[in-house]
């Protein structure tokens, strides 16, 4: 059965950038321009989950992203690796939202797309780490959701999901359409092929404005929040590490053992 899939992807500051480049200025996270944004790490896993299903069962993948000022090369990676279509909810009005505004907008866009069997989301965005939007979309659309998926198979109206639990996993069957929230373990996102990159270069993303998804301004971005960001700050950390040296690395290793023994730690 060909499966219609929507993958929610977010453009975020590169979470792998060294901690020193993350600077809070006037309650906003600012990163130097040379740190390129990326598609969030868990959304990349969500994309890979969809691509694996497309490999075996066939189907269509629509990547969906919400934000403003998308870097086209970054967000078009979804097309380069094999998504068929890219829809951007791109407008200033979408800025500074919370999980409610984001889930409302994505759900409205998903309704407009209309035909879907699975909506894939990442377990949490790599910037705000809240881990709510996938479940919020499911609640708003009134469809089931399975979280922390590390393997997904789709057969006739149902999905079989391996869901990670603290000491192992569950195999959960869910009726479709459903939201499936993906965690690591699904496998890293495949590299784009040269052919994929060329094809993506020719495709233009579809851009939808708030009016296109029929959402009133009070539900958008900052206006649609149900929690207020009071403050963003970086706690000051004092480093007091005692570095143990030696003529060779091995000698330093041996000295570390002696020092820890002295300090009665081991």
């Amino acid at each position: 059965m060909a499966v219609n899939m929507i993958v929610c992807c977010k453009q975020v500051p590169d979470p792998e950038a060294p901690p020193a480049v993350f600077k809070v200025v006037n309650n906003k996270m600012t990163l130097p321009a040379e740190v390129k944004p990326v598609i969030g790490q868990y959304e990349e896993f969500a994309l890979e989950a969809a691509l694996k299903i497309k490999d075996t069962a066939g189907g269509k993948i629509t990547a969906l992203s919400l934000g403003n000022n998308f870097v086209r090369d970054v967000i078009k990676k979804s097309l380069a690796v094999g998504a068929d279509e890219l829809i951007l909810l791109e407008d200033k009005a979408f800025e500074d939202g919370d999980s409610w505004s984001t889930a409302n907008a994505l759900a409205a866009a998903i309704r407009k797309i209309g035909t879907y069997d699975v909506v894939f989301c990442g377990r949490q965005s790599s910037d705000w780490d809240a881990g709510q939007v996938g479940l919020g979309v499911a609640e708003i659309l009134g469809i089931p959701a399975v979280t922390l998926a590390r393997k997904v198979e789709v057969t006739a109206g149902k999905a079989k999901v391996e869901r990670v639990i603290p000491d192992g996993y569950q195999v959960v069957e869910v009726t479709l359409p459903a939201v499936i929230v993906v965690t690591s373990g699904i496998g890293a996102l495949r590299y784009a092929t040269l052919k994929g990159i060329m094809a993506a270069a020719k495709k233009q993303p579809v851009v939808w404005k708030p009016a296109d998804i029929g959402l009133e301004p009070s539900k958008l971005g900052a206006a649609g929040r149900r929690s207020k960001l009071d403050k963003l700050f970086q706690p000051v950390k004092e480093s007091k590490c005692e570095i143990i040296g030696g003529d060779t690395a091995a000698e330093a290793g041996a000295k570390l053992a002696v020092r820890l023994r002295e300090a009665k730690l081991l």
Partner: peptide, 8 residues
């Protein structure tokens, strides 16, 4: 890399 304070 940062902490945020929220009010419902």
């Amino acid at each position: 890399n940062a902490q945020a304070v929220f009010i419902s």
